[in-house]
Amino acid sequence: MKTHISPTALARDTRFNRQTSEDRFTDPRSTMEVGHVDPMAEDVGDRARRRMHGIFVGEIQALEGAGRTAFDFPAGDDYANGEIPYELKLDMARQCWDEARHCEISIKLAEHMGGELGEYVENTMLFEAACHNDPVFRLAGVNRALEGLAIDVFTQMRDFGRETGDPVMVYCEDFMLADEVTHVKMGSKWLRAVTENDPERRKSALEFQRVVDGLFNFRGQRGEEYESPIRLARQFRKMAGFTDGEVDVIAEAAAKERAAIEAEQMAASILAE
């Protein structure tokens, strides 16, 4: 089997419909707006099912991505030439097991919510980031940026379970949250270890992380307010090795994007008048 497959090589059964990141970002409709899963909203059922399906496809890709990282790079200490620590490979295999459980959990939760596999489109952004040639970029883009997002999402879904009186949802989301904190911690630890003598590589990997974070601002919908469609879970992010400064950067970038969109909308409505 060859190493470094293309993101399009992802194997799926016929139920799934794929959307690449390019498709998503060039869609003139506002498909980036995920919407707050508000327990009081009239369409809360559909919003929650859509969110759960998004979590599920994220989990499969996290499983597949961790698997590729365990396979693609040989164990060794020649980090400059594509080798990675043996223990990092072990962590990636461990992550495979965790993500496989997360798939099982989200499939069962989605079924309980009346959802169906393949009901919503699958965006492959996570796996695209997991196909980067540099393992350090995979750690930054997947383990830190996207698994960091998973920390936010699971915290929010756990709270949603509390607000809607669903103890099974609370129980499952809390366990998954614990696993995701562990995955982000792995990312922080190995990114630091592998780039210890290569500050340039670390800098560009962190830059890549910011780009991925920026793409997942969902048009400025991340924030720390209760109504934010994606609420930043500062406390759990810090547990996973994020600094306050790093969380501030994500919040500020989202706020900026939100302000720009609001200004755009206001300008459009003035023009329309």
Partner: peptide, 8 residues
């Protein structure tokens, strides 16, 4: 691990 992504 490597096969996971290639199995439908």
């Amino acid at each position: 691990a490597g096969w996971i992504a290639t199995i439908p």
